[in-house]
Design a protein around this nucleic acid. Structure first.
Length: 817
DNA sequence: TTTGGTGTGGTCTGGA
DNA sequence: TCCAGACCACACC
């Protein structure tokens, strides 16, 4: 028997000829050699909870059950944790993983002794990874025999705890181009690029470029694509929106040409993996990642980009965008049989930036894999809820806890009908220009509350009198057990502590070092779990659902932030603003910034001494100036909208039109400039003059057309809108003109002179010019509101911006400076 | 297949 | 014609 240290990349299973499962692990050795590890001793199973005292009877009945397609069935009793109690469960094992649903149904339908069934919907490969606690994108130790060049028959498999460096992985990105000819779409070009420097474009029109391979037709193009992938033999295959576009197109064409799409590591065919409504594809033995899905599911909230196109995302993340070439131009070049260099370069660039994105994102995906035990394939396609859930599922196994069932449709429906609960506190800001602001915030507020107060579905309202006294939830008649650590807090704490540890380590490292990058990816993965656990417990689709747990978390938030507010006020601080986990304060009695900071640190120490558990309030920064504005309707200050000037001169702008997608670029720029003039120069007059100048330019149409485009998303089918807003009208016009628009499309439109209501005047951006623009609208509904929002805090009104009447005495707002 | 609640503000809609 | 309330999108944390 030999031992192999291998890096685990992917897993699946096949059936042997007797319909027994063979787990296959796709691995790489340190030297870069590929292996398939086969393991035959693992069987699919699920749990049956019997009615009390009926276990033995039920076991016998199950053992003797005859179920179609199931060759072998076995059952035995085990104990598992179920909520707060430990109960007997029957483990039902069969030979064929595909028969688990039928087996479960048979047992449920035929035996009255059955109370419930569990863990019947965990895919077999995932079951294996959980039970063996294997981590994809990490090293495993395999004991077994090498039966041929690249196959190992394993006797035993386990993880390796040492931190070995990753083997060098080969990544390949690809992209296709299509053109419509005689109302039929054809693939005209495919580009491929790898992180070894390989690049190739395959097409069937002439080109002299050395990396272009010219073939005779579409069919040969596809054949060469298959051969090239096989020859390059990548570990990771990358596309951008390829699950929805490139792969289905390639697949369909290959089918019609009867080309075997066997691009798997060991010449296996591309597989379709259907999950609910979404379709994805597996390339057996390779990690195939559609980067768009990861970006859309996981990364999008933290991106500044307004759209998730490859161009925008790559520009933001790797500083490289697409080449400029419109679909029409491409079509014309191709059909006119002229020089295709531009298409070739455009096509190759797409693969190159996809590759660059992959080099950045695949390590992030791998870090999440390592933490959750999910295959990179799954991580890259899962939503937040799925990623957290799988983290807890894998740890439930360690704790011998039965995984709660996924809610059925009716359950989800009734959960939806439950009333929502109160959230966090948002303070009403003091409007105007603020000075010497100290910002403090809680480090991971919700996670630390959950951990400190042991908030978990099963610790909720335990029977102990003591817990009722010592761990009561503010505002509610709820409490959480303190006798035993809850499952969720236990594993959430591991996440938080590990993240703190990693962040500490990172501080000592060079930011460009490989180790720093690796740790950064790991802390990012941990952050995802930490930040989504609270919301997950209130998510209607969650297995570990307990709305009261989430409601209690926010109740504690309100309690603590109020408590700190009180402490701060007592010490002479003025609360300028605060949202959920942050407080912005100033001390009107102290002028010297250094003294303010010092005093703030003393205050923080006092607060932290009073906070329980691992809760901690941190110093986030000092800001010489800030703007807080009035609400447009009603009285008082507007929450969630402010701008701060940091000591290093940078601006932090939140909530304002400037940071919103649904305002035209020009309005956003004007507002940002106004904020800057006020914060940096504290000169309201200058800001007013500037706005008047812009208004004049609009009147004269001396502005850039593109800066007038408004972007808004279509969030449901066009027919379902009750209120027909401008963006809906623009979308309908696009639809009528043969454009593809639907749920999720971001509509680019402008407001023109044609029509009476604003909606009627909305026109798709591509169908209008600067001459069509309704300048009145842009002045009154874009520039003026955006500028007034900020300037009204300094008593400037709309009419003053419009009239051009010179105001006097504005400086009074800034006497001191 | 969509982790949660809080909040602002634009435009439309329909009744006075 | 005016205005409140509904609808809708997007932001903050």
């Amino acid at each position: 028997m030999e031992k192999f240290r291998l890096f685990l990349l992917d897993a699946d299973y096949v059936l042997d000829k007797n319909e027994y499962p063979v787990i296959r692990l796709f691995c790489k050795s340190k030297e870069g050699k590929d292996f398939i590890v086969k393991y035959r001793k693992f069987r699919p199973y699920f749990y049956v909870l019997s009615k009390p005292e009926k276990e033995n009877e039920l076991v016998e009945k199950i053992k003797n059950a005859k179920i179609e397609g199931v060759k072998e069935i076995d059952a035995y009793i085990t104990e598992k944790k179920f909520g707060r109690e430990t109960r007997k469960f029957i483990v039902v094992t069969i030979n064929n993983p595909r028969k688990i649903p039928e087996t479960r149904k048979f047992i449920k339908d035929n035996f009255d002794e059955v109370e419930d069934t569990f863990e019947y919907d965990i895919p077999f490969y995932k079951r294996f990874l959980i039970d063996f606690q294997l981590r994809p994108a990490d090293w495993i130790l395999v004991k077994g025999e090498k039966i041929d060049e690249d196959t190992i028959e394993a006797e035993g498999i386990q993880t390796i705890e040492e931190n070995l460096p990753e083997p060098k992985l080969k990544m390949l990105a690809f992209d296709i181009e299509m053109v419509e000819e005689n109302s039929k779409e054809k693939i005209i070009m495919i580009s491929l690029a790898t992180n070894n420097g390989f690049k190739k474009v395959i097409t069937y029109q002439h080109s002299d470029l050395e990396y272009v391979e010219v073939v005779k037709d579409e069919k040969t193009l596809l054949k060469r694509f298959v051969e090239t992938i096989r020859k390059e033999d990548p570990d990771v295959v990358l596309g951008y929106n390829s699950d929805l576009f490139d792969i289905p197109q390639i697949k369909q064409r290959c089918e019609s040409y009867k080309i075997d799409l066997n691009i798997g590591k060991f010449r296996e065919r591309l597989k379709t993996a259907r999950r609910g409504r979404e379709t994805s594809y597996k390339i057996p033995g390779r990690v195939y990642v559609d980067l768009y899905r990861f970006v859309a599911n996981i990364l999008s909230p933290q991106l500044k980009s307004e759209v998730l196109t490859l161009d925008a995302v790559a520009n933001e993340l790797v500083g490289m965008g697409k080449k400029d070439l419109s679909w029409q131009e491409m079509s014309e070049i191709w059909k006119s049989k002229s020089d295709i260099t531009r298409i070739v370069e455009y096509n190759l660039r797409d693969s190159e930036i996809t590759l660059k994105l992959g080099e950045l994102l695949v390590p992030q995906i791998f870090a999440i894999s390592k933490l959750t035990g999910l295959l990179a394939f799954d991580v890259s396609r899962y939503a937040y809820s799925q990623i957290v859930e799988n983290y807890y599922m894998r740890n439930a196994f360690k704790e011998n806890i039965v995984v709660p069932n996924r809610p059925k449709y009716e359950e989800i429906y009734s959960r939806r009908l439950e009333a929502s609960y109160k959230g966090a506190i948002v303070f009403e800001p003091k409007t105007g220009l603020a000075k010497n602001i100290v910002v403090m915030d809680f480090r991971s507020l919700y996670p630390t509350i959950i951990i400190t107060h042991n908030i978990s579905p099963e610790t909720f309202n335990c029977e102990h009198e003591e817990c009722k006294q010592k761990n009561k939830v503010p505002e509610f008649n709820y409490h959480f057990c303190i006798k035993e650590k809850g499952f969720i807090p236990k594993y959430l704490e591991k996440v938080i502590l590990r993240r703190i540890e990693i962040k500490k380590k990172m501080k000592q490292l060079d930011k460009n070092s490989e180790e720093y990058k690796m740790l950064n990816n790991m802390q990012y993965a941990l952050k995802i779990i930490a930040n989504s656990t609270y919301g997950y417990m209130a998510y209607v689709g969650a297995r570990w659902y307990r709305k009261e747990a989430a409601a209690s978390t926010t109740a504690f938030e309100r309690y603590y932030i109020r408590k700190i507010e009180e402490m701060a006020k007592k010490e002479g601080w003025v609360i300028i603003y605060g949202d959920t986990d942050s407080l912005m304060v100033t001390n009107p009695n102290i002028e010297d910034p250094e003294k303010v900071k010092k005093k703030a640190l003393e205050f923080l120490k006092k607060v932290n001494d009073s906070l329980p558990g691992i809760m901690e309030l941190e110093y986030r920064g000092f800001y010489p100036f800030g703007i807080f504005v009035k609400k447009k309707i009603g009285s008082g200050g507007a929450k969630k909208r402010y701008a701060l000037l940091a000591e290093d001169g940078s601006l932090e702008i939140r909530g304002f039109e400037t940071v919103r997608r649904d305002w035209c670029q020009l309005a956003k720029k004007v507002q940002r400039d106004v904020i800057e003039i006020i914060l940096r120069e504290r000169d309201v007059d200058k800001a007013v003059k500037y706005v008047r100048e812009v208004i004049k330019m609009i009147k004269n149409r001396e502005v850039n057309y593109n800066d007038l485009i408004i972007y808004e998303q279509i969030t449901k089918p066009l027919s379902e809108y009750k209120q027909i807003s401008p963006h809906v009208v623009a979308a309908r016009k696009m639809h009528e003109r043969g454009k593809l628009v639907g749920e999720g499309s971001i509509i680019a439109f402008v407001i023109t002179k044609r029509g009476s209501s604003i909606s009627e005047k909305a026109e798709p951006a591509e169908d209008a010019t600067i001459e069509d623009i309704d300048t009145e609208y842009y002045i009154k509904n874009q520039i003026i509101p955006a500028a007034t929002r900020v300037l009204s805090a300094f008593s400037i009104t709309e009419s003053e911006l419009l009239s051009g009447v010179k105001q006097v005495g504005l400086h009074k707002f800034f006497k001191k400076n």
